[in-house]
Design a protein around this nucleic acid. Sequence first.
DNA 1: CGTTATCTTGATAGAGCTCAATTTCAGTGG
DNA 2: CCACTGAAATTGAGCTCTATCAAGATAACG
Lengths: 247, 247
Amino acid sequence: MSYPADALARKLSAFETLGPEELRMLDGLQQARTRIAAGKEVVYEGQHHHAAYILRSGWACSYKRLRDGSRHIIDIQIPGDFLGLRSLLLRRSDHSFVTITDVELSRISADQALTVLREAPRLATALLWAASRDEAMVVEHLVGISRRDAFERTTHFLLELGARLKLVGYGTGDSYPCPVSQSILADTLGMTAIHLNRVLRQLREARLIFFREGTVVFPDMARAAELTGFDRAYLDQGSAGRAPPRS
Amino acid sequence: MSYPADALARKLSAFETLGPEELRMLDGLQQARTRIAAGKEVVYEGQHHHAAYILRSGWACSYKRLRDGSRHIIDIQIPGDFLGLRSLLLRRSDHSFVTITDVELSRISADQALTVLREAPRLATALLWAASRDEAMVVEHLVGISRRDAFERTTHFLLELGARLKLVGYGTGDSYPCPVSQSILADTLGMTAIHLNRVLRQLREARLIFFREGTVVFPDMARAAELTGFDRAYLDQGSAGRAPPRS
DNA sequence: CGTTATCTTGATAGAGCTCAATTTCAGTGG
DNA sequence: CCACTGAAATTGAGCTCTATCAAGATAACG
């Protein structure tokens, strides 16, 4: 693997091979680094003039709150993911971020992002691909919450997370570290922590998924994927002209 | 209003004023026009090498199907909206489109889109803003399906739709044409048509929303907005540096 | 060694789904 | 002009999944 250190570079290379000049620019984008402890707010909903970030290490999540106090977690971010890219051009951020573990971030301004779009077309395409992929995941979650029951939804999400992690070098897809509490996972899947707990127990009893002590294990990933119709195509496949389907 | 004819130009102008040169480029983007009858598939899920489109007139919707045959409609598109922009860079389209009424479309290739990004920064920013806004709506629907009940969700969506339509010159926000069947609306809101039908009846009885014969009317929009916490800020407000908040 | 978050299990209730049937109403063809 | 068709809307009854309320158990932590 040629990009062991930089999760984003590694992810983008699944879309298209980047040259040294492009890797240099990508690195340049990530100069403004910060470390933030677990459980801190990074951007809050309604904030003005916020920046976007690249998550270099650690886990975070983006969420929205409703008036009744409940929250929904839009997605969980892992190394190599963007934070707040969507609302970079909106007047106010439309969601909030919290760190789940200690993290390292690179701050990115709208200007920087637009400069890359103008001056490095191939890198720009790769970044826009990554952004499209993120959006495809949100859409997948939307459909899941609307049309899949709690078992399918949970399984599907954990499979997706495994595939995402593998792409940036964490875990094997069927086994990976996952420092996420049941409460966070429940808010991501659109159910109560209590119900998720029961679902996880039943998935464990069915020997489909073991979610324990910060680790997720699929004893039989093919079966889990089959049961939920999980197709990882949208997560790691590149542009139109490129790699043929895995036929 | 300086852009009566072109819904997209009109929408973008809510974000930032475009000069004549930019309007010319925007028009150039929309040269490859087609007409399609109601009820036709435009792009299907899994399709390769697909293009994106701008919807110039008429209504359409984007959806995904699950293996059990159920479908979820991701969003309803109205004049000035993009179709398939998200999956322009993905190898395969991640969703399908059907026309709801007869429509007129402009076809856009990835190359054209990328050229605009490179050569017309201000127009590019405006287009990316519109794309971000679309994504913000998807996220809003995600949260709605997960955390709002059927009444709130229905009201919120119809308010949002009214605001979107008004921005491109259809209806007044509290009254607008809506050629959408209950079945389509139900699949958008993540419920069954039967349940939506009951919800609509109760909303009618409560004198909150009248959804009948292709028209939506809010007798008291402020009350409806209050009840569901609807805040149209994310739909029509521009970039950071621009208009002050309505404080 | 109390405090607090996380996880776990039980019992009950309700929102929304499923199955079933009836009603419009716009076509459409004889 | 009228029967026939099919999509959309409507109403009813029963059932299921998931939320809510309550209460322990476990474990990390200052």
